[in-house]
Computed example of a mutant assay.
Amino acid sequence: MKKAIRNVLAVLLGLVIGSVVNMGLIMSGGDVIPPPEGADVSTMEGLKASMHLFEAKNFIFPFLAHALGTFAGALLAALIAASYKMRYAFGIGAAFMLGGIINSFLLPAPSWFIVTDLVGAYIPMAWFGGKLALGLQRKRSNITL
Rank of each mutant, 00 (worst) to 15 (best):
K2P: 13
K3V: 13
A4K: 15
V8D: 06
L9P: 00
L9Q: 03
V11Y: 02
L12A: 09
V16T: 03
G18L: 05
V21N: 05
N22C: 14
I26M: 15
I26R: 09
D31R: 13
V32A: 14
P34I: 00
T43P: 03
E45L: 12
E45I: 09
G46Q: 13
G46E: 13
A49P: 04
M51Q: 01
L53F: 07
F54C: 01
I60Q: 00
P62T: 08
P62Q: 09
A65K: 06
A65S: 14
H66P: 05
H66S: 15
A67M: 11
G69E: 02
A74M: 06
A74G: 07
L75W: 07
A77R: 01
A77L: 07
L79D: 01
L79E: 01
I80G: 02
A82V: 00
Y84N: 14
M86Y: 06
R87N: 14
Y88N: 08
G93N: 11
A94D: 02
M97A: 14
M97P: 03
G100D: 08
N103I: 07
N103W: 03
S104P: 04
F105H: 01
A109N: 13
W112M: 01
T116L: 15
L118W: 06
G120C: 12
G120F: 12
I123P: 02
I123T: 06
I123Q: 01
M125F: 15
W127P: 04
W127T: 06
W127L: 15
F128C: 11
G129K: 00
G130W: 00
K131M: 14
K131D: 12
K131L: 13
L132R: 04
R138I: 02
R138T: 10
R138L: 09
K139H: 09
R140H: 10
S141A: 14
N142G: 07
N142W: 01
N142Q: 10
I143V: 15
L145R: 10
